[in-house]
């Protein structure tokens, strides 16, 4: 049981890391630009498809990743320049409608280009197989690599946001946008940069997950909802909050899925226990969200009074 607990903890952290990568961009865009981007999950999906395509073309995952990341950034900038820029001054409802429509169009576009059958990306040789962690526990090397890469990105983000001039502008933008603009900072440039950066993180998450999960047109939607939950729990605009909330959500979700049915099996038959456990497990996250919001209405690391 201890082994299982440790393994699931790792699985939970790994899910949390992926959620963090998606949610970090989402929370920055939401917090700094006051812009709700329902199409953010699409960037995650596009990242996965691009790495699948480029890895197949070049023959190696790493080269594929190297080409896919700038491509996702370019795609993000393209969207920002031609569409999102026109939506910043509109109401949230307009933004939701436009980006939701965009999500449908892009998902269908991906289906037309790559087909609806899932695509599979081989695990890079250097990271294939598994290693023995504790006693009899084996854990896939690749999933450890995802965790390591995620933590590296988190540390990089921390340094960028807390200790650089660009990060200072980001923080300033998140707390008082008109003031930053009045001080002569080029807001248009800042917004485009934030957007490109968020796109890259989401694309990176998609690219990392491609060798573990199959790449299919529905993958963006499933992660987007969880990412929004993470943003709300963590506090809008706070990258630190997104990190803590993502890990918590990942662990709670994974633990609930595993130990819920096990505990329920003591009182119910397996099929019913599994069914009930799996209905309850996804609810845990929302219960958590409700609790956090009841105690801290602006999220764990959100500023009091901020929207």
């Amino acid at each position: 049981m201890t082994n299982l607990f440790l393994l699931q903890l790792l699985n939970g952290v790994q899910l949390g890391i992926l959620l963090f990568l998606v949610a970090a961009g989402l929370t920055l865009i939401f917090g700094i630009m006051d812009f709700i981007n329902i199409a953010h999950g699409v960037l995650y999906m596009v990242g996965a498809y691009l790495v699948a395509t480029f890895a197949a073309m070049t023959g190696t995952f790493w080269l594929g990743l190297l080409i896919a990341l700038p491509a996702v950034v370019a795609f993000g900038l393209f969207l920002e320049f031609f569409l999102f820029r026109r939506l910043y001054d509109r109401s949230h409802l307009d933004q939701v409608l436009a980006t939701f429509g965009l999500m449908l169009i892009l998902t269908e576009g991906v289906r037309m280009i790559w087909g609806s059958s899932p695509i599979f990306v081989p695990v890079p040789d250097a990271l294939s197989g598994s290693i023995r962690l504790l006693g009899i526990i084996n854990y896939p090397v690749y999933r450890i690599a995802i965790i390591a890469a995620g933590f590296a990105v988190a540390i990089g983000l921390y340094v960028l946001i807390s200790h650089t001039r660009a990060g200072m502008l980001l923080r300033a933008g998140a707390s008082n946008r008109p003031m930053v603009s009045a001080l002569g900072v080029n807001i248009t440039w800042l917004f485009a940069a934030v957007f490109a950066f968020g796109a890259m993180l989401a694309g990176f998450a998609g690219a990392m997950v491609a060798p573990v999960l199959s790449v299919d047109p529905g993958m963006g939607e499933s992660v987007l909802i969880l990412a929004f939950v993470v943003v709300v729990i963590g506090g809008i605009g706070s990258v630190k909050g997104a990190f803590v909330a993502a890990i918590v959500v990942g662990v709670v979700d994974t633990m609930g899925r595993t130990f819920g049915p096990i505990l329920l099996q003591m009182v119910l038959d397996p099929s019913a226990a599994s069914q009930t456990g799996r209905t309850l497990a996804p609810m845990l996250i929302y219960i958590l969200m409700a609790l956090v919001l009841a105690i801290r209405p602006s999220g764990l690391f959100g500023r009091r009074g901020a929207a």
Binding site: N3, L4, L7, Q8, N11, I136, I137, N138, T258
Partner: peptide, 8 residues
């Protein structure tokens, strides 16, 4: 999650 259970 399921694979972790199998391993355990």
């Amino acid at each position: 999650g399921e694979l972790a259970q199998i391993a355990a």
